[in-house]
């Protein structure tokens, strides 16, 4: 048993986008604020801060999760992936990101990092995901610009491209 007191900052060691990372946090610091404020990884956006909008979605140990409903001290030893990890190289987009651009699946872009993290996780684990499954995962996100249709189109397009890449590999 370890007790981390409310008034002090405590070290948190974890893996961020494949690289070892560490920082300090009060127990009450949310993972979303820890990523943005302490780690400087501002790709993750903060919207509602009570688990409804999905903008802050990241990957924790391979599963999509709300970073505003997790405390930084809870991720000790965990593997965290954020939207910064998606692009394979500077100035290059991932297949999913490229499909978002092609299909105009974003306008203001506020909800996009969270949606990308959810859909990237989905397509990595379920390459056969159809429109219904994509909508099921998308239900955990709010987008006020697009009306969702272009996002579904982009995800279906990316899924097909990824399947073709695997088939031709």
């Amino acid at each position: 048993m370890r007790r981390l007191t409310a008034t002090e900052r405590h070290p948190v060691r974890f893996t961020l986008n494949g690289k070892p990372a560490e920082g300090t946090a009060h127990p009450r610091m949310l993972l979303s604020d820890f990523l943005r404020g302490v780690q400087g990884a501002t790709g993750t956006h903060v919207g509602c801060e009570h688990g409804v909008c999905g903008a802050c979605t990241v990957r924790i140990d391979g599963a999509m999760a709300r970073s505003c409903l997790t405390f930084a001290v809870q991720i000790e030893g965990a593997e965290i992936d954020t939207v910064e990890a998606l692009a394979p190289a500077p100035a290059r987009l991932s297949v999913l990101q490229d499909a978002f651009r092609k299909h105009h699946a974003l306008q203001c872009g506020f909800c996009t990092p969270g949606i990308l993290m959810s859909l990237d996780t989905l397509l990595a684990t379920e390459s056969q995901a159809d429109a219904e499954r994509i909508r099921d995962v998308l239900s955990g996100h709010l987008c006020r610009c697009t009306g969702y249709q272009p996002i579904v189109a982009a995800a279906l397009d990316a899924a097909q491209t990824l399947r073709e890449e695997t088939d031709n590999a």
Binding site: R2, R3, L4, A6, P27, R28, L30, V73
Partner: peptide
Amino acid sequence: KPAAFDYVR
């Protein structure tokens, strides 16, 4: 933001 608390693992 949540109020302060002690965290016990």
